[in-house]
């Protein structure tokens, strides 16, 4: 079986073709211009992941919210679960880039960290 993807690992967006055998294993990846593309394609057809970026409420800062991201990509289907957890958090200023906002979110082994100062 073949699957056609667009690589989202960088803004170039190479069209990638993944060849899968009957057991669903990847037997070939073509169309990528760099190794990141192959890695993306392999993950995408087996267990797709995404980085989640959003914001968290802050009290006592310059702005009412500060931006955050998951420090590593998380399973795509967990995005809304993580959003619920993050939206329940309120931080106290000061917040600095890199501060851990939620540790090990949803037991995924990934922290949510601040991406700006406030």
């Amino acid at each position: 079986m073949k699957r056609n993807l667009v690589c989202i690992a960088c803004p170039i967006g190479c069209p990638i073709e993944v060849e899968l055998n009957d057991a669903g294993e990847v037997v070939g990846v073509t169309g990528n211009t760099c190794p990141r593309g192959e890695a993306y394609a392999r993950t995408e057809v087996t267990h797709p992941v995404r980085s989640l970026t959003t914001s968290v409420k802050v009290e006592g800062g310059v702005h009412p919210v500060v931006p955050v991201k998951t420090a590593a990509p998380i399973p795509k289907e967990k995005m809304f679960d993580c959003m619920q957890v993050i939206n329940a958090v309120t931080l106290q200023a000061p917040v600095a880039i890199g501060d851990v906002v939620v540790k090990d979110i949803c037991g995924l082994g990934v922290d949510v960290v601040a991406t700006n100062n406030d």
Binding site: C10, P11, S51, T53, T54, S55, P67, K69, I97, T115, N116, N117
Partner: peptide, 22 residues
């Protein structure tokens, strides 16, 4: 621009807008 996707060419890593500017 709090989403990631900045700096892949320049820094070789995927940063959010405020991190790139920072």
């Amino acid at each position: 621009c709090i989403h990631t996707g900045f700096g892949l060419h320049y820094f070789g890593e995927e940063l959010s807008g405020p991190e790139y500017a920072g």
